[in-house]
Nucleic acid binder design. Structure first.
Length: 275
DNA sequence: AGACGATGCGGAC
DNA sequence: TCCGCCTCGTCTT
């Protein structure tokens, strides 16, 4: 489920159906102990930054300050939407259930589900680099991201997973971005030209935005002649189409795709197309 | 019934 | 560098 595109997709969908409502919150599974702090507050905004979601709740009673719900899905977290109210009994381990006036949303398996004040939220944001899916704070032209990537002598394949440099890219997109950019993942960030860094940023924007639009990862659409790439079986019906991630043969040149570990994750690349 | 893996990441060593 | 978190569909026994 979760690279940056899934998070922004969830923000868009939930914004439409939850924002403006007074939300009933509960933790059926019981592992979210602060859940009562949010109950019956009005949800006024949902914001996504990289792989993080922030839900802003209006003050209740005499309180003055907004309260933020911070969610990070981690590796296997996910949302389930219930269109009919009241929602059916929770299925599986539901950490948080939010019931609005129109829909109910269940959250299961997140790495992070916590209540934050403004300060706490700012501290999370301070650890994140620019997000190519955002239009402000250098989500714009990518100069800040290029600066951060260029400042490191570590391999670009690892840098793209470092959320403090660029926020939102995960293991699938890093492989696809570097393939389409024609960059060998082992090259140092400091070694990349301004043009290459601009290209990495542009591809990050383009590929992630397509992921938001499509509701899945489909990078095969960006390589001419790769229309026949087969969709990989996905866990929840959604399947992805990739050019190098979990592929054996290069779609462009036919060379065998190489695999290795970089940034503690499996990296896929084409030794011929990525120099 | 049990093992395994997955688009993530912080913390211990 | 490795472990553990904590979830669940799929595959194996």
């Amino acid at each position: 489920m979760p690279e940056g595109h899934s998070i922004h997709r969830a923000a868009i969908d939930q914004r439409r159906e939850l924002v403006g409502d007074s939300i009933r919150t509960s933790s059926p599974q019981g592992r979210f102990e602060e859940v009562g702090l949010l109950d019956r507050r009005v949800l006024v905004e949902i914001d996504a930054w990289g792989k993080h979601l922030f839900y802003r709740f209006a003050p209740r009673g005499r309180a003055r300050k907004d309260t933020w719900l911070h969610v990070h899905l981690g590796l296997y977290g996910g949302f389930t939407r219930h269109a009919s109210l009241p929602p059916p009994p929770p299925r599986g381990a539901v950490r948080l259930r939010m019931i609005g006036a129109r829909v109910a949303i269940d959250l299961a398996g997140p790495t992070v589900c916590e209540v934050l004040d403004d300060k706490g939220r700012a501290a999370v944001l301070a650890r994140l680099g620019p997000d190519p899916l955002r239009k402000t704070r250098d989500g714009g032209d990518g100069r800040e991201a290029a600066r951060r990537l260029h400042a490191s002598g570590r391999p670009i394949g690892g840098l793209l997973l470092d959320q403090s440099l660029v926020a939102g890219i995960g293991n699938v997109y890093r492989a696809e971005i570097l393939f389409l950019a024609g960059i060998d993942p082992a090259r140092a960030g400091s070694e990349l030209s301004a043009g290459e860094l601009a290209n990495v940023w542009g591809l990050s924007k383009t590929l992630l935005a397509a992921g938001v639009r499509d509701g899945r990862i489909d990078t095969a659409q960006f390589l001419r002649g790769a229309d026949d790439v087969e969709a990989m079986p996905g866990r929840r019906g959604r399947s992805k189409r990739t050019l190098v991630y979990h592929q054996h043969t290069c779609r462009r040149c036919g060379e065998a795709i190489r695999t290795g570990t970089m940034g503690a994750r499996t990296l896929f690349w084409c030794p011929h197309c990525q120099q």
